[in-house]
Simulated assay, not measured.
Amino acid sequence: MRWATFDCFGTLVDWRHGIRTGADLIAPGRGERLLAAYNRHEAAVQAETPAPRYRHVLAEALRRACADEEVALGADDASVLATTLPYWPVFPDVGAELSALRAAGWRLALLTNCDRDLIAETRRRLPVPFDAVVTSEDVGAYKPSDAHFEAFRCTYEPTTWVHVAQSYFHDMVPAHRLDIPRVWINRQGDPPGDEKVVQQVQRDLGGLLAAVERA
C-alpha cells in the first residue's frame, strides 16, 4: 500500500495569500507587513503547552503581529483568519498533479497543523479526495513534533510512504528525523538548508509523480 502524505497550508492551499488578504481586511494596505509579523509568532504560539486549538493560534499570532505593527484591533477582528480560512485559494497545480498520483495507485493523506472543523471546510475546495487526515486536534501537538507522523504510521501501517510539503521547519525536519522519504515543495525559493534533510526538491507540484517515485 503506497501512501503520499501532504501538508495542506502552504503546500496545497496558498497560506500566505490567505494570511495577507485576511490581515488586509482589518488593516488595509498593511497585509504584507502583518504576514511577515505573523510568521515570526506562529511557531511560538503553537509550542505553548497545552497545545492550543488552531483557531486560537491564528487569532493569538495575529494579535501579536498587530501589536508589533501598532495596528489597533476591534473586539472580534482577530477571528478574521479562522473565518476566511475555508476560502483561501488552492494552488492551480494541485488538481492535475494529485490526480496523477491517484491514477498511479498512490493513496493520499493530509498531516495538517489545523483543527478538524477547519480542514473539513478546506477539503471541500480541494479538487481531489483524500483517504485519510491527521490533524493537530487529533494528536494534541503541532509539527515539527513527531506526533502527526507517528499517529499516521500506527493507524495506516504504510508499506511505502513519501511525505510532500512546503515547510522545511514543520515538515522536512521531522520527516528526516523519522527517516521518511520526502519531497520539498520550495514555493518561496528558500535557502536549501541541510542537504541531508532534503531529498527531492521542487519549486511547485509540477511532475510530482516522478519526484515521489524517485523519493
Rank of each mutant, 00 (worst) to 15 (best):
Glu32Asp: 12
Ala147Thr: 06
Asp171Asn: 13
Asp77Ser: 11
Thr122Lys: 11
Glu97Arg: 01
Gln202Ser: 11
Asp190Glu: 13
Gly193Phe: 01
Gln188Ser: 15
Val197Lys: 03
Pro192Ser: 14
Ala132Gly: 12
Val45Phe: 06
Ala75Lys: 11
Asp194Val: 13
Leu108Cys: 03
Pro191Ile: 02
Arg102Pro: 06
His176Cys: 11
Pro127Ile: 13
Arg187Thr: 02
Ala165Asn: 01
Pro50Met: 10
Val90His: 05
Arg116Asn: 12
Asp190Thr: 11
Pro50Gln: 05
Leu81Pro: 02
Ala27Val: 10
Trp88Tyr: 05
His163Arg: 00
Arg40Phe: 09
Val164Gly: 00
Ala36Leu: 14
Pro28Met: 11
Ala82His: 05
Ala141Asn: 06
Arg177Thr: 15
Thr135Pro: 04
Ala61Gly: 07
Glu137Tyr: 08
Cys66Gly: 10
Asp68Gly: 09
Ala82Gly: 05
Thr83Leu: 14
Val212Met: 07
Tyr142Cys: 04
Ser145Ile: 05
Asn113Gly: 11
Glu121Phe: 15
Val71Gln: 02
Phe169Ser: 13
Val183Thr: 09
Leu101Ala: 00
Gly74Pro: 09
Arg102Cys: 08
Gly31Glu: 02
Asp138Glu: 07
Asp131Pro: 06
Ala43Gln: 13
Thr112Tyr: 08
Tyr38Cys: 03
Ala61Gln: 08
Arg125Glu: 12
Val198Lys: 05
Val13Met: 03
Pro144Gly: 08
Ala43Met: 14
Glu70Asn: 15
Asn113Thr: 10
Leu108Asn: 01
Val90Ile: 13
Leu62Tyr: 02
Asn113Tyr: 09
Glu97Gly: 03
Leu208Arg: 01
Phe91Thr: 01
Asp76Phe: 13
Pro28Cys: 05
Thr112Asp: 04
Asp131His: 12
Val173Cys: 09
Arg40Val: 12
Ala65Lys: 04
Val134Leu: 03
Ile180Val: 10
Gly140Met: 08
Asp117Phe: 10
Arg64Glu: 07
His176Gly: 09
Leu178Gln: 01
Ala75Cys: 08
Arg55Glu: 14
Val198Gly: 04
Val71His: 00
Gly207Thr: 01
Asp68Met: 11
Asn186Ala: 12
Pro86Cys: 06
Ala23Val: 07
Ala175Thr: 02
Ser79Phe: 14
Ala44Arg: 11
Asp131Lys: 10
Val139Leu: 03
Thr11Pro: 01
Gly189Thr: 05
Glu97Met: 04
Ala67Ile: 10
Tyr156Gly: 02
Arg64Ser: 07
Val162Ala: 01
Val45Met: 08
Ala43Gly: 12
Ala100Asp: 08
Arg30Lys: 15
Val94Glu: 00
Ala37Pro: 03
Asp171Pro: 08
His17Val: 15
Glu69Tyr: 13
Tyr142Val: 08
His56Thr: 15
Ala165Arg: 00
Glu42Lys: 06
Val57Pro: 07
Lys196Phe: 15
